[in-house]
Amino acid sequence: MKKIILPGCILFLAMSGLALARVSGLFPTAIGPEPLTATYQQINAVFTGDWQQYGQLFTNLQQFLFPRLFLLVITIVPVIFFLHYIAIGPMVFDHGGKQVYCYNLFVRVVHWCAALSFSLLVLTGLLILFASLFAGGAIGIMARSVHLFSALTFTGSAFLLLLVWIKDMLPALYDIKWMIIMGGYLTKEKKPVPAGKFNAGQKMWFWLATLGGAVMAVTGYFLYSFSGNIDTLRLSAIIHSFLGAAMLAMFLIHVYMSMAAIKGALGSMISGYKAESELKILHPEFKY
């Protein structure tokens, strides 16, 4: 029995010593053709990085979701508006009577700068996403340049609008009520809707365009300049596309509301005046 115990103890000590030395890295790793798997793992860490995390996500989203999402937005939203226009029709107000000065010249100029640059952003953005329809090349390159300059213009004008309108755009309690009745756009009757100088829909559009616009500017900067590592770029592209689709939808809503759904809304942003009769219905809480 003794003959087994002593060598057994020695063997055990030797084995545990070896194991310890191996764990603590005292031994050099084997040289030669043996540790291929470990080597390829190290190479892949440098070569492909963590592609499965964001690279795969970006690839799948860009391949299957983004073009369809944007296509859906630019088709479904106008169709809904068309149906709304036929079924419920626009809001028509008597624009005679007392006029209220709502937008001063500075605000109007900045608004139209933002409007023009945002329209260009939408057009060129869609042009880039669907560039294959135009065979790419010069048109796509021009679209990217216009997108850049429109973005710069829009960032400046959106920042000014943020400063000018931030007080009127702060959320209020009656905004919830406005959201519940959808701003009264689903009925034909003209009852006063709960809204201040700007209603909840305008506030949503405002915050999406300013805060969302800031996110778009930052992600867009990464995408245009390729600064930051590859995962930053992939995340930027994903955020830029999702947020872009949301802003595009809100932009289309804004255009429909101002151009068609409320007669004379376009004129108020040109002249700066709104009729008091209209304000009593659409913006009753507005103290002018």
Partner: peptide
């Protein structure tokens, strides 16, 4: 090619 860089982001 319009130089959008999507291929670079997709490539592992």
């Amino acid at each position: 090619c319009i130089g959008c860089g999507y291929c670079f982001m997709a490539c592992p």
